[in-house]
Amino acid sequence: MSSTRALVADAIPASCVDGPGNRYVLFLQGCSFDCLACHNPQTICTRSTPSTRWASIEQILHEVVAAAPFLSGVTVSGGEATLQWRFVLELFERLREHDATRRLSRLVDSNGDADPAVWDALTPAMEGAMIDLKALDAEVHRFLTARGNERVLASLRHLDELDRLTEVRLLVVPGVNDSADQLARTAEWLLHLHTVPPVKVLAFRHAGTRGVARRLREATDDDVERAVATLAATGLVAQSCSS
């Protein structure tokens, strides 16, 4: 029995929007960012709250085993998954060892605000990471997340070197991070990686967000399609989340 426990915001045994195929998704509580556009702000706080639970490796393993016949894989998301990376690592190792779960792919869904050493530690047990890039420009990033993006960009580079960068996700916040110029520079930056990752473009929506987010305009389908087109024109493989 492992004594490692995680503070869990939620777990979903069947998701088709957190990576390829049908996935078990574990949302860990706590985040290093404080995004204006966060649609799950209750997962930011790093302490336990009435909506969180402490879960052991065994508990999560048990849930995954039950769902395993129906799954392509497991995704650990958040909050920010890497804040509790020791738990993620142990979970992944256990999933890799267990007969019923060995064939499942193991992905992390992260805001990228993690130390390179964390990715080094996770790499042997994880197939890849899907990283959110809120903005390439440091000031825009700071406006959106209250933090700089040096660590995010470093994570992208490092994961690329480790051959673990599965996908990059861009959340379109109209008028903030979707100017043609910013998108073109973002594309150019990504195109310089060894293995250029596919890009998924998501639309910012008000649902779930805090009051402050009302200051931002929701992204329309047109906004998203325009961003996809701008990115695709550079040669990136870009897709809106709904296609």
């Binding site: 069947a14 929007v17 649609h39 998301s77 959340l171 967000t209």
Partner: peptide
């Protein structure tokens, strides 16, 4: 309708 659940498609990204 069984939701093979999607938060993001209706509600934007979590982050």
């Amino acid at each position: 309708a069984q939701r093979v659940r999607s938060h993001e498609l209706d509600a934007g990204a979590r982050r």
